[in-house]
Amino acid sequence: VCALAPARVNWEEDTTVAERMILPILYDIFEEPFEIEKVVASDKPFRHIQVSFRSAISFEVEYDIYSMSKDATLYSGDSHALFQLHPGLFAILLSDGMGQSKEAQHESRKLIHLMRECLNYNMNPETAMHTLHYVMSLKQQDDMYATLDFALVDLQHGDLWSWKAGGMSTYILRGKEVLKVESNAAPVGFLSISAVEAEKRKLKAGDVILMHSDGLFSSVDDWDEQEEVFLGYAQQVAGTTKTIQEKLTTIMQ
């Protein structure tokens, strides 16, 4: 709570001063965004306004990663990265290279690295995705490409933004409800230009977000049946009081 003694009668101008001068200071001190919660005018013990601030971050993320190569092979084509772009914005990257070879792993890791570089330079997500499509289409290897599943979790407003380039469905488990985020966009490197549209979903406290590669399911058995069984079991486990680490391990095992 900050008390400001105004030099003028216009309270709105003083509120603007608080936004412009105090909010940046709070951001530097606590390394997270703040917002004005309320403004109260008072004449005691002197004429002033009291400005109350609160953190603008309403949510937090707990996560875990389960990684396993097919048939216990030495290399997996999957690569991932989870990190904060800045306080209040959490990024998730999942890439699946074609096959289980060292080249497939290299391809997915390169894609993750390039995407992080684009994001670190504050490039717009759509522009970054288009840039990756163009750059990867210029590579020398024949018939090598990788999928990219990119998500941003807005911890201030509780929004999930998703961009997919050949990625699998993302599942959002919410009690007895399952939300699916899908896309038909081509993998990165498959085409020099590809339409990549953002999918936005509103999140609620307690939602469980599952992002995965196609190695989750068998290519031999019926895909829809596997998905139904998997989601049914995942919902049961997600509804328990276990930690997110225990939940993920239990589901995957």
Rank of each mutant, 00 (worst) to 15 (best):
residue 79 S to M: 11
residue 79 S to D: 15
residue 80 H to Q: 15
residue 81 A to T: 03
residue 82 L to E: 11
residue 84 Q to M: 15
residue 84 Q to V: 14
residue 85 L to S: 12
residue 85 L to K: 13
residue 86 H to E: 14
residue 86 H to Y: 13
residue 86 H to D: 04
residue 87 P to A: 04
residue 88 G to Q: 07
residue 88 G to W: 04
residue 89 L to F: 13
residue 89 L to W: 09
residue 89 L to P: 00
residue 90 F to C: 03
residue 90 F to H: 08
residue 92 I to K: 14
residue 93 L to P: 01
residue 93 L to D: 03
residue 93 L to V: 04
residue 93 L to W: 01
residue 94 L to I: 15
residue 94 L to Y: 00
residue 95 S to T: 14
residue 97 G to T: 14
residue 97 G to H: 09
residue 97 G to S: 10
residue 98 M to G: 10
residue 99 G to A: 04
residue 100 Q to D: 13
residue 100 Q to A: 09
residue 101 S to I: 06
residue 101 S to M: 06
residue 101 S to D: 08
residue 102 K to D: 14
residue 104 A to V: 07
residue 104 A to H: 01
residue 106 H to L: 12
residue 106 H to M: 11
residue 107 E to G: 08
residue 108 S to V: 04
residue 108 S to C: 07
residue 108 S to M: 04
residue 109 R to S: 10
residue 110 K to H: 09
residue 112 I to A: 03
residue 112 I to L: 09
residue 114 L to Q: 15
residue 114 L to H: 10
residue 117 E to L: 14
residue 117 E to H: 04
residue 119 L to R: 11
residue 121 Y to F: 13
residue 122 N to K: 10
residue 123 M to C: 04
residue 123 M to K: 00
residue 124 N to Q: 09
residue 125 P to G: 01
residue 125 P to W: 05
residue 126 E to T: 07
residue 126 E to D: 06
residue 127 T to F: 15
residue 128 A to F: 02
residue 128 A to N: 02
residue 129 M to R: 01
residue 129 M to G: 05
residue 130 H to R: 11
residue 132 L to A: 01
residue 132 L to F: 02
residue 133 H to Q: 06
residue 134 Y to M: 07
residue 135 V to D: 07
residue 135 V to M: 10
residue 135 V to Q: 09
residue 138 L to I: 02
residue 138 L to V: 02
residue 138 L to N: 08
residue 138 L to H: 11
residue 139 K to E: 08
residue 140 Q to G: 00
residue 140 Q to H: 08
residue 141 Q to N: 12
residue 141 Q to C: 06
residue 142 D to G: 08
residue 143 D to N: 07
residue 144 M to A: 05
residue 144 M to K: 11
